[in-house]
């Protein structure tokens, strides 16, 4: 009996000590890890949809709140201190799961470029949404009627055999543009 109690106590103590020390370490490294994730995962995408800025969109990134507790992380592009475009991540559900898209948009509401940051679509079909031939179609669009598939009267040619994936990208981007236009004053105030 004493053995069993001892076994029990030793294991419990080890587990507790390990749990506590790991949570302390997690807390200490939290900010650093968030920085690293932004640098290695988000930065390449941001750079691919924004150009011509002279600030550091990574360092100046901010959470912008839209009321109702909704907020979005935005990366501002500035020239001579003047905000002229920004990038933000939008997403929608595709065929295999969430599709995340980095959307670059300028202050007139015109799309600067989009880049797919994460998706789980079928290789060879839906996965082709990441190809430049698809994403470049979004460039310079701004009217919400244009940001739709050609079958719906828009200007985006869907990838054949992958309508669901194409639709997800279109939906995410047009929602993103709508959010941007609704909150443009708010955004200008933040940056």
């Amino acid at each position: 009996m004493r053995d069993i109690i001892k076994m029990f106590i030793v294991l419990t103590v080890i587990c507790c000590v390990s749990g506590v020390s790991l949570s302390i370490l997690k807390d200490k490294t939290k900010d650093k890890i968030a920085d690293q994730e932004i640098k290695f995962v988000k930065e390449p995408a941001v750079l691919s949809v924004l150009a011509g800025f002279d600030n550091d969109p990574m360092i100046e990134r901010k959470e912008v709140e839209f009321g109702n507790d909704v907020s979005k992380l935005m990366f501002p592009a500035k020239k001579d201190g003047e905000l002229f475009a920004l990038a933000m991540e939008v997403s929608d559900v595709g065929y295999g799961g969430d599709v995340n898209i980095m959307l670059g948009i300028d202050m007139e509401g015109q799309i600067r470029g989009i880049s797919i940051t994460k998706h789980k679509e079928t290789p060879g079909l839906g996965a082709r949404i990441s190809e430049a031939n698809f994403t470049k179609q979004f460039k310079s669009l701004s009217v919400s009627g244009d940001i739709a598939l050609t079958s719906k009267g828009g200007k985006i040619e869907a990838i054949s055999g992958a309508t669901i994936s194409s639709k997800a990208v279109v939906k995410a981007v047009s929602d993103g543009v709508a959010i941007f236009k609704d909150n443009i004053e708010n955004i200008k105030n933040v940056f």
């Binding site: 053995d3 001892k6 076994m7 030793v10 294991l11 080890i14 587990c15 390990s18 020390s21 790991l22 370490l25 997690k26 490294t29 650093k32 890890i33 690293q36 994730e37």
Partner: peptide, 28 residues
């Protein structure tokens, strides 16, 4: 460490350090 549970105890100790390495590598 009682010898009957030593493997379990070793695994917890090792796993703790592995999680620590994971966190540190993510950070640096």
């Amino acid at each position: 460490i009682p010898s009957k549970v030593r493997i379990a105890a070793f695994i917890v100790i090792i796993a703790t350090f592995v999680v620590a390495v994971e966190l540190l590598m993510q950070a640096y």
